[in-house]
């Protein structure tokens, strides 16, 4: 069973719909026991990283997430809270990935938020099996995880950042695979097969 963690960080519907389209069974839950028992855990999230950390704390899920041994996929803010810390609300995060989350500095060709389709490269994980470097995925964010030893995909928006991270059984994508067309569905399918 797949568990989608419901910690009140935005709408989970697009992730649910993607799993439905793929015929996968899932539960939407904030229950620690159900999350611990799940074969796969998805941690989506749209919004503010500090609020996301606060919500995980008040749901009693901080140590639960950290202690998971089966594949976990954080998406967008769900990935950012798995990093070391975030400039958004100046908050300490779960510290699973060794990256800090920083704010984009707007510039001539650097719109903030970074919104739309951008290409991913330097792909280094089974998560990207069957996907070529240069494929486009959909991003919407104003904060990014810096490059670090856990980086398994990169994207450039003004500067190069981590489009995806991996540490042991933990995975994270800054982009939204559930909104990234066929490429995104392939990435989710790969995650489910890990």
């Amino acid at each position: 069973m797949i568990a989608i963690v419901d910690y009140k960080m935005g709408n989970l519907r697009s992730v649910e719909n993607a799993l439905k389209r793929m015929g996968a069974e899932f539960v939407v839950t904030a229950d620690a026991e159900q999350i611990r028992r799940a074969d796969r855990v998805l941690l989506p999230g749209v919004g503010n990283a500090a609020e996301a950390m606060e919500n995980l704390r008040s749901a009693g899920l901080v140590d639960v997430i950290r202690s998971l041994r089966r594949p976990v996929l954080g998406i967008c803010v769900g990935m950012q809270v798995m990093c070391r810390c975030s400039e958004e609300g100046d908050v300490d995060c779960l510290g699973i990935f060794d990256a800090r989350v920083k704010r984009f500095v707007p510039g001539l060709e650097v719109k903030v938020p970074h919104m739309g389709w951008n290409s991913i490269g330097n792909l280094e994980s089974k998560l990207f099996k069957g996907i070529e470097g240069g494929e486009y995925v959909y991003f919407v964010h104003s904060y990014y995880p810096e490059l670090c030893p856990d980086t398994i995909a990169t994207t450039t928006h003004g500067k190069m950042f981590s489009a995806a991270l991996k540490y042991e059984n933990f995975y994270g994508t800054q982009f939204h695979p559930e909104k990234s067309g066929d490429v995104g569905e392939r990435i989710i399918a790969n995650f489910l097969k890990l």
Binding site: R21, Y138, H176, E178, K179, S180, G181, G184, E185
Partner: peptide, 8 residues
């Protein structure tokens, strides 16, 4: 639409 479409 949300059920059937995989782009934003």
């Amino acid at each position: 639409i949300a059920d059937g479409i995989n782009i934003p």
